[in-house]
Computed example of a mutant assay.
Amino acid sequence: MRSRARTIRLGAIAAALGLALAGLAAAAPASAATYTCASFSGLTVTADTVSRSPVSLNAGDVIRATVSPARDGDVIILSAAAGTSINFVEAPATTGLSWKAPVTGSYGLGWSLEASGTRPSSLTWSFTCTPASGSTATVSDSDRDGVANSSDACASTTLPDSTKKPVAGRYAAKSTGRFLDGTGAYSGYTVVDTGGCSALQIAKALNLGRTDLQSGITLTTLKNWAATH
């Protein structure tokens, strides 16, 4: 029964990841930045699941993920998509999961937790990445927003945005880097697409009004900023 349950669980994760990656590919602008090994060095995300795409890796790059809280029996599951194929890797949550890129290329990666009992209400994921050379990846993303310092348009980005009055049609960046409006609707953009800028930083840079500062920016503002950064 456990084997059958695991098969069903993996199938559900594959379907969910496939839809998520398809949505990202369709919505993201052509100039959207690509994640790299360095993007995971010191990355911490508070979310139920974590997905990144596209991730450009060299053969032998190793990404390690840990999750907190982690209890005996909990399992971390990684879904690694390359082209039309999806492979699954799993490891005990108490030890963490390390995955080595088998070939140089672009991947869609998604991490989830299979809880042995009641699922924690909040999960914090921590990542590191060691490049194929075996040396520690150079940390070039000081504010951990997924954009290297050399191409980051906004330094010291803090996620999530401190939106005091979220409303429909106004978008703010969450801890995952995605821009969602006050109803939870996804804009199709992340802070990687905006050059490492949160909604608050964009509003301040454009000298926008109080509504933009407190409730988030409009989709038009978000699109225009992403197109030029």
Rank of each mutant, 00 (worst) to 15 (best):
55 V>L: 07
55 V>G: 04
56 S>L: 06
57 L>I: 06
58 N>D: 08
61 D>E: 01
61 D>K: 04
62 V>K: 14
63 I>C: 07
63 I>F: 12
63 I>P: 02
64 R>A: 13
64 R>S: 15
64 R>N: 13
64 R>E: 13
66 T>E: 11
66 T>I: 14
69 P>R: 02
69 P>D: 02
70 A>W: 00
70 A>L: 04
72 D>I: 11
72 D>F: 08
73 G>H: 10
73 G>P: 11
74 D>F: 08
74 D>K: 07
77 I>K: 00
77 I>V: 12
78 L>Q: 01
79 S>W: 05
79 S>V: 05
79 S>Q: 10
82 A>G: 05
82 A>D: 09
82 A>P: 01
83 G>W: 15
85 S>N: 09
85 S>G: 00
87 N>T: 13
89 V>E: 12
90 E>H: 12
91 A>S: 10
91 A>Y: 06
92 P>I: 02
92 P>Q: 02
92 P>L: 02
92 P>R: 03
92 P>G: 04
92 P>F: 03
92 P>T: 00
94 T>F: 09
94 T>Q: 05
95 T>P: 01
96 G>L: 04
97 L>A: 03
99 W>K: 02
99 W>E: 00
100 K>A: 14
100 K>M: 13
101 A>M: 04
101 A>Q: 03
102 P>R: 09
102 P>S: 02
104 T>H: 12
104 T>D: 09
106 S>D: 14
106 S>R: 13
107 Y>E: 00
108 G>R: 09
110 G>T: 01
110 G>F: 05
111 W>D: 00
111 W>R: 02
111 W>C: 01
111 W>M: 00
112 S>E: 11
113 L>I: 06
115 A>S: 15
115 A>D: 08
115 A>W: 08
116 S>R: 06
117 G>A: 10
118 T>R: 04
119 R>N: 00
121 S>G: 06
122 S>V: 15
123 L>Q: 03
123 L>K: 03
124 T>L: 02
125 W>Q: 02
126 S>V: 08
126 S>T: 14
126 S>Q: 14
129 C>M: 09
129 C>F: 12
131 P>Y: 14
132 A>L: 11
134 G>A: 11
134 G>M: 11
136 T>M: 06
136 T>C: 01
136 T>P: 06
138 T>D: 01
139 V>C: 11
140 S>L: 07
141 D>I: 08
142 S>A: 09
142 S>N: 06
144 R>E: 07
145 D>I: 03
146 G>C: 10
146 G>K: 05
147 V>E: 11
148 A>M: 11
149 N>G: 15
149 N>A: 14
150 S>K: 14
150 S>A: 15
